[in-house]
Structures are given as C-alpha cells and as structure tokens.
C-alpha cells in the first residue's frame, strides 16, 4: 500500500500539490517513487522559469528509466528544492516531505481540476 496524504491535490501523472495561498509546493507521490525504484537524479527547472499545467517541468531518473514530471498548475517557479540535487534518495525516503518545486500560481482555479486523496486512491487502484 502506498502512502496518500489527506488535504493535498493529486494529478493523474502522480504529482501532489500542497497549496498555501497562491503558492503551490509540488512533488511526486509515494506510489510514483515506488514505481521508479531508486531515484538517481531529479532534473528541475530554475527559479524564474514558467511552468504550465499539463506540461513537463523536469524529470526523475533511475538507473534504467527516466520519467517526466508534469506540472499540475501554471505559474512561475519561486524555487527548486536544490537539496535533491545531491540527495535524490530523499524522494524515495519521504516522497511527501520532498517537494521538488515551489510555484507562484497564476490560476489557482486549476487546483479544482485535480483529484483529492480519495480520488487519487481510486486512480492508483489501492
């Protein structure tokens, strides 16, 4: 069973969003990190980059795979979690504690299109 946190929003491509006002923290779910296996690198955008809902903003890499990160919301990157540059294993250890980017949302209404915890639970069939 994968961990799912209440109170977060979820995308079909397994990203989670934690909104604090107009600011969104984005990471990948526990389910996603398990599917990937040992993550070896997190490819992240830079501060000031634009992200678009439904568009790729980075990638997770393991030894034998690479998986795109899709932004659930649109906006401007306020920060990327540079801690993950040297310690990508943190995503494996605590997927919900390891945000990847922090975004200033340009359209918070986009959150409404995302799933809640129950919806995501059904989505991954657990």
């Amino acid at each position: 069973m994968s961990k799912i946190l209440e109170g977060l929003k979820y995308s079909e491509s397994h990203e989670w969003v934690k909104a604090e006002g107009n600011v969104a923290y984005i990471g990948v779910t526990d389910f996603a990190q398990k599917e990937m296996g040992d993550i070896t690198y997190v490819d992240m955008p830079e501060e000031g980059d634009d992200v678009l809902a439904g568009e790729e903003f980075g990638a997770l890499e393991s030894v034998k795979a690479s998986s795109e990160l899709i932004s659930p919301v649109s906006g401007v990157v306020l920060a990327a979690n540079t801690e993950l540059e040297d310690a990508p294993e943190k995503v494996n250890e605590d997927a919900f504690g390891s945000w990847i980017i922090k975004v200033e949302m340009s359209n918070a209404a986009e959150l409404d299109a995302l799933m809640d915890a129950a919806g995501y639970k059904a989505h991954i069939g657990e």
């Binding site: 070896t40 690198y41 990638a59 890499e61 393991s62 030894v63 034998k64 795979a65 690479s66």
Partner: peptide
C-alpha cells in the same frame, strides 16, 4: 548515467 540515452529516452 544511462537515463540520457536513446534506449531509455527514445525520441527525447
């Protein structure tokens, strides 16, 4: 660092 390569990334 094979995640860069064609057999994983294909058209990317």
């Amino acid at each position: 660092l094979q995640a860069r390569e064609q057999h994983i990334k294909r058209e990317k």
